[in-house]
Design a protein around this nucleic acid. Sequence first.
DNA 1: AGTCTTTATCGTAATATTGCAATATAAAAA
DNA 2: TTTTTATATTGCAATATTACGATAAAGACT
Lengths: 110, 110
Amino acid sequence: MGATKTSHFTDRQNKVATTMKALAHPARVAILEYLLKADACICGDIVNELPLAQPTVSQHLKELKNAELIKGDVAGNSICYCINEKSLEMLQKYFAGIAVKLEKKKNNCC
Amino acid sequence: MGATKTSHFTDRQNKVATTMKALAHPARVAILEYLLKADACICGDIVNELPLAQPTVSQHLKELKNAELIKGDVAGNSICYCINEKSLEMLQKYFAGIAVKLEKKKNNCC
DNA sequence: AGTCTTTATCGTAATATTGCAATATAAAAA
DNA sequence: TTTTTATATTGCAATATTACGATAAAGACT
């Protein structure tokens, strides 16, 4: 074994897990936070910002893109990566929903 | 190589990534959602709920506990696992903060 | 005491992730 | 067209994760 048994869980649970996995590495968190505060979003800037080699950063960008957390537009010679607002809005709502449910529960256990 | 270069990132970025990693598996998302809706929080119930063997579930529970997303109290013979509200509140605020920053940016790029 | 029930841990095989050097690709500049 | 610049891909070694059978540990119940 060793592979995640995705088929046994709901699409929703797999989607959440996949999105979380994309943020389960400090480099990818750093990329997201950089895109959030920077004016530009050129790949080269991100590579310069991070303490990792260019191929490694490229791989992390690919994973963020696969998870639809960012999108990349060709800008002449380079690529402009930007945050995909929809996915982050989804995450925000997911945790806001959890907070509401927790509020309703009000520690009625443990 | 193969190990994450945590030392090159901020404590905050590593903390976020670690918390996300704990939710980067559908079984752990399912556990969280079960604890959110269930009245009880006994380990055995979780094992019955999930399509995985008992040792596997135990391992996932341990990871959620290490990430401080849940806590486990001994209840006689069994263990009562509950959601750690503080960590989920932290996550909710993290994504709410991102949403605010995105609002301010208002798509001024790409 | 012995037995049952519940949960954790160990050991290990299968698979996935991380990181980077080397190389490929493709548009821009000369 | 050649060269430079920017990014992606390939290949591979090191490490981490996932899953589970076997077994251990610890409280509950005769």
